[in-house]
């Protein structure tokens, strides 16, 4: 029954998102707005209801399965991929590797900034 209730809530949020997207002509998909609404709801509520954590934990391992029907559709773009595969391969590989090499330094820089800012805020007495 937990899953039933969880799905009811999730689909409810999705439909609310679809409604808002259509009503206000927003450029965001209904499911994405639904995710935003659920996030806001959780922030306001201050904790995750057991139903929702159980349902999402139960659903997530199946995401690859749910993706399969649409991904089979990529085979339909075979001719496009045949023309552009080299560009795609290089673009995706180079950008991913560059990001992996850069992100640690970006993160380290902003971590040191924010820790020195919090030290200043604490009048230099903080020892973390």
């Amino acid at each position: 029954m937990v899953l039933l209730k969880g799905l009811l809530v999730l689909i409810g949020f999705q439909l609310a998102g679809e409604f808002i997207s259509a009503q206000f002509h927003l450029p965001f998909p209904g499911a994405v707005i639904g995710m935003g609404l659920l996030f806001l709801y959780l922030m306001i509520k201050g904790s995750t209801p057991k139903t929702l954590s159980t349902t999402s934990t139960a659903l997530f391992p199946y995401i690859p399965l749910f993706l399969m029907p649409a991904c089979v559709g990529a085979m339909g773009y075979w001719s496009l991929l045949q023309e552009e595969w080299l560009a795609l391969l290089i673009a995706l590989t180079v950008s991913t590797i560059t990001t992996i090499a850069l992100t640690p330094y970006i993160m380290r820089f902003f971590m040191s900034l924010s820790s020195s800012a919090s030290r200043r805020a604490n009048g230099g007495s903080s020892s973390d």
């Binding site: 499911a31 659903l59 199946y62 029907p69 649409a70």
Partner: peptide
């Protein structure tokens, strides 16, 4: 054809909506 397959695989595909909404839960936590 892909369309024939996709029509009968819809129930799985449709689950992507609620799953996307559910991504708010781990993000919040």
């Amino acid at each position: 054809s892909f369309d024939q397959y996709f029509a009968t695989a819809q129930p799985l595909h449709l689950m992507l909506g609620p799953v996307t909404v559910a991504l708010a839960v781990p993000l919040y936590e």
